[in-house]
Design a protein around this nucleic acid. Sequence first.
DNA 1: TTCCCGTATT
DNA 2: AATACGGGAA
Length: 330
Amino acid sequence: MTDGDERSSSTHRTASGDVDADAPADDDAPALPDEDVDAVREALVGWYGESHRDFPWRRTDDPYEILVSEVMSQQTQLGRVVEAWEAFVDRWPTAAALASADRSDVVSFWTDHSLGYNNRAKYLHEAAGQVQTEFDGEFPETPAELSELMGVGPYTANAVASFAFNNGDAVVDTNVKRVLYRAFDVPDDDRTFERVASNLMPDDESRVWNNAIMELGGVACGKTPRCDEEGCPWRRWCRAYETGDFTAPDVPTQPTFEGSRRQFRGRIVRTLGEYDELTVDELGPRIRVDYAPDGEHGREWLRGLLSDLADDGLVDVVERDGESAARLRR
DNA sequence: TTCCCGTATT
DNA sequence: AATACGGGAA
């Protein structure tokens, strides 16, 4: 669940007049004057209706298929997700089918399709199991229940509830934050984003609304805005369009990937997907050319990575002839 | 090089 | 509150 019911604090932004995020007199004050809220809503839904991209997961309301698409989309650009999603739901068409699969197969699929964080493949597999064991094979339908599934946080819970059941609250991802921040000067504060997003969403229209506002953030209001090119439906209300200041909320910067332990974890998982089992010294040279058993990046270093991967439940480390060997966990 | 990005864990 | 987590694409 999102923390939608907390209304206590403190962010006041009345100065510019176009957002009253937390007015003392009326906690649920809309982001715009009443007469404009309807127009803002209609403009966005209308724009989405006539111009949205036609992704395959937008043609299904199967919650399992939606969940798969959301988990993939959290980490990978949508263009690349299409092929992977089709192959995934083709291979494991239902939550029950996925739950019966070997974890190693799901993780290898993830890696083979360059889907990033392989922990999420594990979560998805685990969530499919939860649907069988904790929900009796009936896919949960509310954000609160969906949140109980492994790997499903506030964003994904509301996305699946919305797109499968038209039953979600407003999603708040970085697209939504950027759009609200630019258009209505909403301050960069998670609680405020949630409240404004929730107030802006028309009742019982989470499916089209959440699709539309994220489409806006992805197509017209990305880091580089394309307001006129994409015919942004909010130009007449948009603070950024008016002022020319398209600053977006800060996104935390990442440590470099090249040479990182994440990179080598990825290589280990990829390599182990190609073999039944490898000893540490067989594995080492396959993940870095300068592997030397007693060198700086040798057994010690590699065993550390393997031990973390084992803690994550992705790898098993076994003893074979007094030597450590690794394999993907089934 | 930088960007993308939600969740779990600590 | 901070950190770990993948890897292709822009």
